[in-house]
């Protein structure tokens, strides 16, 4: 059924909504999504809709029933690797994004291999120490790349608590900065997706600002 539209038609539809210049830049950009949970699965969905050229999806986990309140998976995908489940879903949303998956846990040793091709990296882990490790590895190995990270999106606090902070020219952090899942156990689809949307909107802004290729 997807074949009723050509790639050219899809590309034109995206240009109509995003503008020719940005649509072209989006199609030439590679974004890595590190962790495919509540943040990462929704980030990947939005970037696919935005017509991003290439996505690198990284997670070692499988889809569980408790993920479905906030993560972009179907009940029928429980038990599947998140990378495979998400790649299937994204290709049904819009088939133009080149998707590369890695079923691996990211650590300081494999960061270089996994992220070398990415222009922009979205950190979407749930563990605070893993977030910090990834940030430090990117700062050390790839100071030229952009990192859009997240911290604090648990609980039912005001949606207006979610903000995006620019720390340096290449490092942004989204979230409320304080709601820690170690203490606030409840996590809701609305606040997680808000935070994911902040990350994606920041990515779009970075791509828009950049002259020429990233």
């Amino acid at each position: 059924m997807a074949d009723i539209f050509t790639k050219e038609q899809i590309s034109q539809a995206l240009s109509q909504k995003h503008g020719d210049t940005l649509a072209k830049k989006l199609s030439q950009t590679c974004v890595a999504v590190c962790g495919l949970g509540g943040l990462g699965s929704n980030i990947a969905m939005m970037l696919t809709r935005a017509g991003i050229g290439k996505l690198i999806l990284i997670d070692f986990d499988k889809v569980e029933l408790t993920n479905l309140n906030r993560q972009n998976y179907f009940l029928s995908q429980t038990g599947m690797y998140k990378t495979q489940a998400l790649a299937d879903t994204l290709s049904k949303i819009l088939p133009c994004t080149d998707i590369q998956t890695f079923n691996e846990k990211i650590n300081a040793l494999n960061v270089k291999k996994l992220l070398k091709e990415a222009d922009i990296i979205c950190e979407a882990f749930d563990d605070a120490a893993a977030k910090s490790m990834l940030a430090d590895s990117i700062f050390t190995l790839f100071p030229e790349k952009y990192l859009v990270s997240a911290s604090g999106m648990s609980g039912l606090g005001s949606p207006n608590d979610i903000v995006t902070r620019k720390i340096t020219d290449k490092f942004y952090i989204c979230g409320d900065g304080i709601s820690d899942t170690d203490y606030v156990k409840e996590i809701f689809p609305s606040k997680v997706m808000l935070c994911a949307a902040h990350q994606v909107h920041t990515v779009l802004g970075i791509i828009d600002m950049k002259e020429g290729n990233l």
């Binding site: 962790g35 949970g37 509540g38 943040l39 990462g40 979407a124 882990f125 749930d126 563990d127 605070a128 120490a129 977030k131 910090s132 940030a135 430090d136 700062f139 050390t140 100071p143 990270s149 997240a150 911290s151 604090g152 999106m153 648990s154 902070r165 720390i167 340096t168 290449k170 490092f171 952090i173 979230g175 900065g177 304080i178 709601s179 820690d180 899942t181 170690d182 606030v184 996590i187 997680v192």
Partner: peptide, 27 residues
């Protein structure tokens, strides 16, 4: 950015501006 490997050898100077971002769990 100040990487972790630079922490030990960094002496804070007059007029320095430091931002320390704490990560909390959740995602």
């Amino acid at each position: 950015i100040l990487t972790k490997s630079e922490y030990d050898n960094t002496i804070l100077k007059d007029n320095d501006k430091v931002e320390i971002v704490s990560f909390v769990g959740g995602g």
